[in-house]
Amino acid sequence: MNKPSQPGKAGIIVPTAEEDAAIYRGIAADPDAVELTADLAARLQPLRRRGRPTAERPKVPVTMRVDADVLDAIKATGSGWQTRVNQLLRDAVRRGKLAA
């Protein structure tokens, strides 16, 4: 049985020389296996982008000062208050109350 490569590092097991040899024999016998060369590694691309898709209208972080009681009232409406403030401002722009 293999021992961890570093004491106290559970889960990190380095194969023995015999296990390495068996692994490489298996790779050599597999017609679908491709050796990862430095050139091939440099050309590899992820299959898909990670994370959220790019927003059509990305949000912009803003720092602004408002009266404490106004902010308290807005935050008291619960989770999602920033989205609701954004919608209120958007509605005001659409109605012509604010010039965009």
Rank of each mutant, 00 (worst) to 15 (best):
4 P>D: 14
5 S>Q: 09
6 Q>L: 15
6 Q>W: 14
7 P>N: 11
7 P>C: 06
8 G>T: 00
8 G>N: 05
9 K>I: 11
10 A>I: 13
10 A>M: 10
12 I>F: 12
15 P>L: 15
17 A>Q: 15
19 E>P: 01
20 D>N: 04
21 A>K: 09
21 A>N: 04
21 A>S: 05
22 A>K: 09
23 I>D: 05
24 Y>M: 13
25 R>W: 08
26 G>H: 10
26 G>P: 02
27 I>Q: 06
29 A>L: 08
29 A>N: 09
31 P>G: 06
31 P>R: 14
31 P>I: 13
33 A>S: 14
33 A>P: 08
33 A>V: 08
33 A>K: 03
34 V>L: 10
36 L>K: 12
36 L>A: 15
40 L>Y: 05
41 A>S: 06
41 A>L: 13
44 L>D: 07
45 Q>A: 15
45 Q>G: 05
46 P>E: 14
47 L>M: 11
48 R>M: 12
50 R>S: 15
50 R>H: 04
51 G>R: 00
53 P>R: 12
53 P>Y: 03
54 T>D: 15
55 A>C: 04
56 E>Q: 08
57 R>L: 07
58 P>S: 08
59 K>L: 11
60 V>E: 13
60 V>H: 13
61 P>K: 08
62 V>Q: 04
63 T>R: 10
66 V>C: 04
67 D>N: 09
67 D>S: 01
68 A>V: 02
69 D>P: 02
70 V>K: 06
72 D>Y: 00
74 I>P: 00
74 I>G: 00
75 K>Y: 03
76 A>H: 00
76 A>L: 00
77 T>V: 00
78 G>S: 01
78 G>M: 02
79 S>Y: 12
79 S>H: 11
80 G>E: 08
80 G>R: 01
81 W>F: 05
82 Q>R: 14
82 Q>G: 15
83 T>H: 13
84 R>T: 03
84 R>D: 00
85 V>M: 08
86 N>A: 10
86 N>P: 00
86 N>F: 01
88 L>E: 07
88 L>A: 13
88 L>S: 03
89 L>R: 05
90 R>F: 07
91 D>F: 13
91 D>R: 12
91 D>T: 09
92 A>W: 07
92 A>L: 09
92 A>E: 04
94 R>S: 08
96 G>I: 06
96 G>E: 02
96 G>P: 07
